[in-house]
């Protein structure tokens, strides 16, 4: 069996090229987003779109029996305002979130991963309904994802 060596080199060469391409693309994109002048807030569509997304999200929550129970004692107007300012803040908009920290806001609610996941799905669907581009949606979800640890800390 004397084919192996030449062939193995082709193998490794091909995989090296693939990984190099991905690495370069990754580096290129990071560089691009770093030099981009538009903020995520602008790419989401500004405060108007964020407010509409929050409203759309609240309708989805209201229709979801598994999730709506957690809002039984919530002042919805206050919550909507607070969430909108948080999304604005997180996306580098001209707001400062002044609500409670995520740990305290969710403490002892008995939330499970299932509830967390459903809210993520509802938020993404609400953004999609407002025609927000996939890139901006992914970036916002990426900025919110690390909040999981705080939200779940005091369950």
């Amino acid at each position: 069996m004397s084919f192996p060596h030449k062939y193995n080199r082709t193998h490794r060469g091909l995989i090296a090229v693939i990984f190099a391409t991905i690495a370069i693309t990754l580096a290129g994109c990071t560089h691009q987003s770093a030099t981009q002048s538009t903020t995520l807030y602008e790419r989401l569509g500004g405060q108007g779109t964020i407010d509409t997304v929050v409203e759309n999200l609240l309708y989805r929550i209201a229709d979801d029996l598994e999730v709506v129970v957690f809002f039984a004692n919530t002042n919805i107007d206050l919550f909507a305002e607070s969430l909108a300012s948080q999304l604005c803040d997180v996306s580098d908009g001209p707001c400062r979130y002044e609500g409670p920290p995520m740990g305290r806001a969710h403490q002892h609610m008995g939330l499970t991963d299932a509830h967390f996941n459903r809210l993520v799905e509802h938020l993404d669907a609400a953004m999609q309904a407002q025609g927000i581009a996939l890139g901006a949606r992914n970036e916002l979800l990426g900025r919110l994802a690390p909040m999981y640890a705080d939200v779940m800390r005091l369950q």
Partner: peptide, 11 residues
């Protein structure tokens, strides 16, 4: 999963 890592796509 890396959010928004390549051209706004998750990797």
């Amino acid at each position: 999963l890396l959010f928004s890592a390549v051209a706004g796509r998750n990797v």
